[in-house]
Computed example of a mutant assay.
Amino acid sequence: MFLKKLHLKNFRNYEDTSLEFSPGINVLLGQNAQGKTNLLESIYVLATARSHRTANDHELIRFGNNDADIMGFVHRRADDLPLELELGKRGKKARVNHLEQAKLSQYIGQLNVILFAPEDLSLVKGSPNGRRRFIDMEFGQIAPRYLHDLTSYRGVLKQRNRYLKLLSARKTNDRVYLDVLSEQLASFGGSIIAQRQKFLDDLEKYAQELHLSITQRQEKLSFEYDSKLKNIAGYSEQELQQLMYQQLQEQYEKEIFQGTTLIGPHRDDIKFLINDKNVQTYGSQGQQRTTALSVKLAEIDVMKEQTGEYPLLLLDDVLSELDGQRQTHLLKTIQNKVQTFLTAPAMNDVARNLIKEPKIFTIKNGNVAETTAKGELLLKTITFYPHGYK
């Protein structure tokens, strides 16, 4: 899978831009605040129908305009697939092969991406919320059922928390409805936990080998799903659903007193272990960064295993945050394997020596020019047609 063409209209600081990419490594060069990250963000939004930088879609629309448009031409297996996402005051419109999709869930998954930005290096030492978001965003792209269960869970959780506040304020005494909400929450929650555990098992398989390679086989990396439910080891999905319902009932008095739901996947976490020791607590900064790098690179193979195709890899100024050894391992891992978009102020020595035949773009004030490795301008015209490509 790779993105052949991209057209942006009124997206961030891009007024009307058309680009054609290499299936290998595409390097986006430019100083800060010129539009490198905006271009990467547009690809991420095209794939996931949401931004990794803001929850407000209006911020994605060029100042002074009412809507924005992202069009992409994706090569998958033996065919080419046009994708389009319109952003406006009335929400999003998504099209696959020129056909508007009734639900965004039918659109997500047509193009898979992995984003690796400097903040992802804090995946290990950062907050539990960041690690939960990591699973939800990455796994949600390739597992429609997980995305459905997660959306349903959040809806029931919101209702349940609202009702717990009513019980806490003694505005109602009806616990029958609380039982109904608890049963629904446990049904979706148990499913989410089971699916997360499976995803982490798959991710660990690839991350372990990557981590051993980076550390000259000195450190063994492993994952542990850290649930607020008690004693979940070895439980099936159905057993997890029953266990969660039971433990929710046991928490009623405490939850009513606090007015919120205290257990469930919305409060769970991931533990990263190196040689059986918690790297969040005992690991050095280097070990934490190596763990994050191993996890992000492992995603590439998990997505390939799950979907049959490699995803796109978006590297947003991440090389500047890695030392030479980790830069080398990253670039050697992705070379000739996955279409990559890499942003940087300039090509450093490691990238210049390791990246073979990159396609280079220079970005300034939202204007993109294709250049040679020596900085020479290449002139090329790409034509996009409304709701179609030629």
Rank of each mutant, 00 (worst) to 15 (best):
T17G: 15
G283D: 09
H98V: 11
N26K: 05
A169N: 04
Q280D: 15
K332C: 04
Y14K: 02
L87Q: 06
S22L: 10
L46E: 07
D149P: 06
Y225E: 09
K356V: 04
T340L: 07
G259P: 15
A186P: 13
H148L: 09
A49Y: 04
L121M: 08
D301G: 06
R12Q: 01
D67M: 14
R175D: 05
K36N: 07
K228M: 05
G264A: 01
R76W: 01
A102D: 15
R352S: 14
Q159K: 03
K277E: 11
R170E: 14
D276G: 02
D174A: 07
G130H: 13
L83A: 00
L19C: 09
M303L: 08
N129W: 13
A55T: 10
I256W: 02
R352W: 05
L378V: 12
N10D: 12
Y153L: 07
I214K: 00
D16Y: 13
P311I: 01
L28H: 03
F384L: 12
D149Y: 09
H58F: 12
L3D: 03
T340D: 02
R326N: 00
I274L: 08
R90V: 04
S105H: 10
G130S: 10
K390Y: 11
N13Q: 05
G72P: 00
V350A: 03
L315C: 01
F384C: 11
S42A: 08
Y385D: 14
N365L: 13
T260W: 07
K228T: 06
L115N: 05
L29W: 12
R170C: 15
D69K: 04
D120I: 10
K337Y: 06
I114D: 02
K165R: 10
L200G: 04
Q184W: 05
E239K: 11
S152D: 03
I270R: 05
Q280W: 01
P144T: 04
F384Y: 07
G234V: 07
G259F: 13
R62M: 06
S127V: 14
L123N: 08
L203I: 02
Y163G: 02
N336Q: 09
Q195A: 12
R352D: 12
V338F: 01
E357K: 14
L83P: 00
N353K: 09
T261V: 05
P311Q: 04
T48G: 03
